[in-house]
Design a protein around this nucleic acid. Structure first.
Lengths: 156, 156
DNA sequence: GATGAGGGTTTGTTTTTCCAACTTAAAGGA
DNA sequence: TCCTTTAAGTTGGAAAAACAAACCCTCATC
């Protein structure tokens, strides 16, 4: 899926270049759930084996997953999230939240995540500085990259 | 890019089926920045015109964007986020945050977003119930879909 | 010594993507 | 009037990616 080279210098695009291809985020979902074995990933994501193999290589390369030997004889591997991989969980959570709200209208969720506070996890994105939930109207974007402004390249 | 049919019933997969294809989230980024015109989207996302055309159709269909006439003669259109589209911004923010931290180590960000509180926006995903920042260790997933548990299908 | 599990790779086909050129409709200038 | 430009796409053919099924290798077990 995702873009490889974005015209606009952008961390969203750069992140998507790593995890935006088809199946990558589903692989991450499974790995975060503890399902790191190849056959499990095939079953639970639906990815063709060759594609899965390519994605796993890429995610390991990117430092998002690690490949761990869990049996010497016979050699058997398992994939696990690195710290960087775990820090992508917020992306999964916000995707889940949107889907729960807009595609299922809150009813009959296929998966409920429980937070240690005892409640069902409903993730809310807040501003680190003030703690308030973030709304679109409260944001102002300031491009820093030379040659770019909000609307696009300045010297087109 | 993204998955169309996921074996595991999952809102993450369903959401990615709508916005997970290559360029879709970059289109949303631009549209949220106010850059909703076709040629702008071509320039700022790098999408081929035919692919962009297909993505826009899909996003409108999905209720994430609307197509608005901004000039009668000649007929000219512009795409804008719907409320549902705006509510996908948290996904963009978490992607940006990860990229800023892991791919740029915080220095020389190509884009800074200012929050109305006056500070630079650093998005933090918190639990709606308790307000605490969400950490992986604090989560427990409970699949609800019949025939599924954490590890996969129960009747494989 | 056959069977099966796990973790992939190979091969050939089908889909997508990509790119460049073309279209349509109108405005603006020479 | 004719020419060029802008905007928003569509079309057609070549290249890349995804897909599905079969295959391979190493062991373990029956």
């Amino acid at each position: 899926m995702a873009a490889t080279k974005d015209p606009r210098p952008c961390s969203i695009a750069d992140t998507l270049a790593l995890v935006g291809e088809k199946y990558s985020l589903l692989v991450l979902r499974e790995v975060c759930l503890g399902n790191g074995r190849f056959d499990q990933l095939v079953r639970n994501t639906g990815a063709p084996r060759d594609i899965l193999s390519a994605r796993l290589r890429r995610l390991v390369e990117a430092g998002i997953l690690t490949k761990r030997l869990y049996s010497e004889r016979p050699q058997r591997f398992e994939y696990r999230p690195t710290q960087a991989g775990l820090e992508l969980e917020p992306v999964l959570m916000t995707l889940k939240e949107w889907g729960d709200r807009h595609l299922r209208k809150g009813a009959d969720l296929p998966m409920v995540v429980e937070h240690s506070c005892g409640g069902e996890l409903v993730p809310v994105v807040t501003c680190k500085a003030c703690g308030d939930p973030v709304r679109h109207e409260d944001l102002t974007a300031h491009p820093q990259a030379p040659g770019w402004n909000l609307a696009g390249p300045t010297a087109a």
